[in-house]
Design a binder for these strands. Structure first.
Lengths: 219, 219
DNA sequence: TAAAAAATTTAGACGAGTCTAAAAAATTAT
DNA sequence: ATAATTTTTTAGACTCGTCTAAATTTTTTA
């Protein structure tokens, strides 16, 4: 049984390690969790004692098999709740994150099973991120950043990255980008990496390089 | 902003004081919260500093106006979540309490408003307990314990009391008692206070005095 | 109404999670 | 390859909520 804090650290480490692909440094965790490195050192010792990560002094942490499983359970809950908030309670996609951060810690496997059923076993959350199934399995097709697409091509929006702030999502809604939107790349500016796109064949807009890296589309 | 623990103490004090009608002793709180009296003393000092209760050494605590308001918000959330679990997720009425104990602490007024709407502004939870409205107002008709009803009369089940254990609820389901059931009092035994009832004109059963005090019916 | 019993509070300690400041190790730059 | 810098850990302290044991107050009983 993990404490709320342990769950949050584990989730952060999972994300920072790209799902367990790489190891993570103390300072990265401290940044992500908005705490001090000293606090991270304390906590990674605890998670390491519980065999959810392996920790080597001065060299950072790696998530274990069990750690991955536990992290995926939390992520599954988070994304199911986000889906519920949007689909059943009519939240906007920029309003769900904070609430889901709380709801993801509710302990009740039955609740999650029933919620999954109510939502008809969704495979992606409102931001297009895949929802791990009951066994922690993720099925995603390939997703590439909009910025990597060559000019003249047309693609479909599959997902968008959400950091802490919801303002990026509000911006996307405002310019007309949503999951499933068709984007045509009209032009790419060399000097600042910004690109001009046509949304659903109707609306021309410029998006910054930064933004284009956080809109994930079909290859 | 109250901590999870403070919320739980406040709720317990609200219930023990019958909604703020009477004052509550340290030991009663300790029993209800399964903690030691010394811990209660510490906590009531904190709640008193926050003006949610008034505390007089050795004489117990009384809930304040603000304390009542805060407690009712928590109770409202608890009962809305229980209603959600039964109506939308098909939980049984004996499965909802523990999960609602967790869900009641989620902080998001918007969430509760939207949940209320999804459920169509219910006025009672699955056990028949009234759900305080947005302003903390409770509207209940009169409810009396089944044990207080005279023989030969017929009444409707309005609510049932739930203690910690869900076994009473399972028992009620088993014998066929539910919110809205019509009960006819056939006979009352003098020696042990048990009563014989007919449920929905179909099924005769004996219920103990203890049970009959926890089934609330129309007067 | 004084002694015994019960209830309550105080004092001091502990674990969880956090912090600051100082020490230690690793990295980088000269 | 040694010095300077950066990263990380250790040490010690603080808050929250809890506990035990001892002291105090209230209540009961004789």
């Amino acid at each position: 049984m993990l404490s709320l804090t342990e769950e949050n650290y584990l989730k952060a480490i999972y994300h920072l390690s790209d799902g367990g692909t790489k190891s993570v440094l103390t300072n990265e965790v401290a940044d992500a969790m908005s705490t001090k490195p000293a606090s991270v050192t304390d906590m990674v010792k605890k998670l390491s004692a519980k065999k959810l990560i392996t920790y080597e002094k001065y060299y950072g942490v790696t998530i274990t098999k069990q750690g991955k499983t536990d992290a995926l359970t939390i992520i599954r809950k988070h994304r199911l709740w986000e889906t519920f908030l949007v689909q059943k309670l009519n939240f906007h996609w920029d309003q769900v994150h904070e609430v889901a951060e709380q709801l993801e810690h509710i302990q009740s496997p039955l609740l999650i099973e029933k919620l999954d059923e109510l939502l008809n076993f969704p495979i992606a959350d409102p931001h297009g991120h895949p929802i791990p199934d009951k066994n922690g399995k993720i099925h995603t097709g390939q997703q590439v950043p909009l910025g990597d697409i060559a000019a003249k091509k047309t693609v479909t929006v599959l997902a968008v990255n959400v950091k802490e702030s919801s303002s990026f999502l509000q911006y996307l809604s405002k310019i007309g980008v949503y999951i499933g939107a068709k984007l045509s790349i009209l032009d790419k500016a060399e000097f600042d990496g910004s690109i001009e796109i046509m949304i659903d064949g109707k609306k021309k807009v410029f998006v910054s390089k930064e933004a284009s890296q956080n809109i994930l589309v079909t290859p």
